[in-house]
Amino acid sequence: MKNQLLHVFRNTPFGRETLLQSVYFCRMTKTPINVYIPEFPQFLMYFEKEIVTVDLDRAFLRDPETAREHAEQIIRSQGLKPNFFTPKRFTASTLPDIPVDFRYMTCPRTISNLSTKVSLGYIGPRVRNIIKNASFPVIIPSPVYKEWKRITVFFGGSANAINAFKAGIKISQLSGLPLTLFTEIEDPYTEESYRDILRENMLYDEIEKGNVNWLFFDKGRLMEDLYNVPHDALIVVGAYGHGLIKELFFGSTLETIQSVLPNSMVIVGPNFL
């Protein structure tokens, strides 16, 4: 599993768009794709400290006969080799365990509720739970397939933001697409303090090499500033900033971003390795 991307396939037009996004991501980052076509309405992910139970909405289980065919078609159309995941372990006979050592996983904004709920500003509780526990970044694709041509990393200085930057660098290196850092300067800090954070984490090299374009905004109006994020950018962002209430909500920055930007997002959780 180590270097693959896990995609749970929903055999609906919406699921097609999601899969197309995953396939595009895989193509750009040269990551093999692994598609799970669910046979049971639930699966478990045993993370290090928590089991996440993922209930799938019924659309996932629709038409299992055509599901595989559809998925294969989509993957082959993009020139990738289809790979299907068959669960090896079961907690109970109808309750498969999905490994948690993938490199990426694609989750739609909601995985348990019907896709009619998919909208900006809503990320389902299961998806949040996966992000909270996963050691891999979670890709939340835009509802309609759209290719991205650049990468924008939101950097607010927290440990998660540093991980997001690392993940962003990785994607940028693999895909050869340009990377932009987006920083909304928060009150006591200055531009230099953000640079210092990168220096402390030995990541400033990337900036010095000139590969990264760094945008600073200091008006304190995140909502408006987000308009500057290109429409064809893949967003990479850490799940939490400095916030305290980590259980129910992500950091305020992420909540704002995910409710304002329609772009595809890569969310890096606190357990990212």
Binding site: F40, Q42, I51, T53, D55, T91, T94, D97
Partner: peptide, 26 residues
């Protein structure tokens, strides 16, 4: 509670032998 799985005690034994004793809160 959406707690699937037919057999009960085996689930605990499975968790102990495979999953480091992780069990769901529900």
């Amino acid at each position: 509670v959406r707690d699937l799985g037919a057999h009960s005690v085996p689930e605990v034994i499975y968790s102990v032998s495979r999953k480091g004793g992780l069990l769901r809160l529900r």
